[in-house]
Design a protein around this nucleic acid. Structure first.
Lengths: 97, 97
DNA sequence: GGCCTGTATCGTTAAATTTCGATATAGCGA
DNA sequence: TCGCTATATCGAAATTTAACGATACAGGCC
């Protein structure tokens, strides 16, 4: 849990929004073909209007910060929140600030 | 309380460090001539090794985000944490993430 | 093997951020 | 008023970030 990396990751509103979407996949990703408990497919996030490569870069930033985990299934990559890291970050930032 | 502005303000480690220093002025700013309950004098933060103008810019960023308050007394400007905003932010980010 | 889909990476451009020294401004005191 | 101190602001350079389209790579299917 690197607080500095996480704060940098959270400094872009789209990345915060992606994390909030992932809290309620049923609400935001009804269109997904695959079962939502596998995670949310990378391409689903293109709904934000950014290009595929830009979305991919944001997802990579979230992953490097440890805020999401990924799972490859066939040609798809599924994203889930990493609750452990997120909770550890919240605890840490609460104690720091 | 603008979460987006605050997260941007916190994305630079020096600004986070300034906020943590302000939690315990007695521990970090023993050298200050003025009583610490007035706040911490801007120049005190130059201890971080950055130039006066750079420190001033960081402090301005923290103030714009509402994380600190300032009080002018004579030629000096004293900085204090804005606990209301900080706590509101922590609550908000805890609910968002 | 060749083709299609999904995702990552590359190369580039534009914009934002960080930093500095220099300068401006504000307030004190002689 | 002049000089001194504290702080802010300006202007420039360097770095980082964000965005895109193009391309590469990986996996499935024929």
């Amino acid at each position: 849990m690197d607080r500095e990396d996480i704060l940098k990751a959270l400094s872009h509103p789209m990345r915060v929004e992606i994390l909030t979407w992932l809290k309620e996949p049923e609400a935001y990703f009804k269109t997904q073909e695959h079962p939502l408990d596998m995670g949310v497919c990378a391409s689903q996030f293109e709904r934000c209007g950014l290009s595929q490569s830009t979305v991919s870069a944001h997802l990579a930033t979230l992953q490097r910060a440890g805020l999401v985990t990924t799972r490859r299934v066939g040609q798809w990559i599924f994203y889930k929140r990493n609750e452990e890291t997120i909770q550890a970050f919240l605890k840490n930032i609460g104690e720091t600030l």
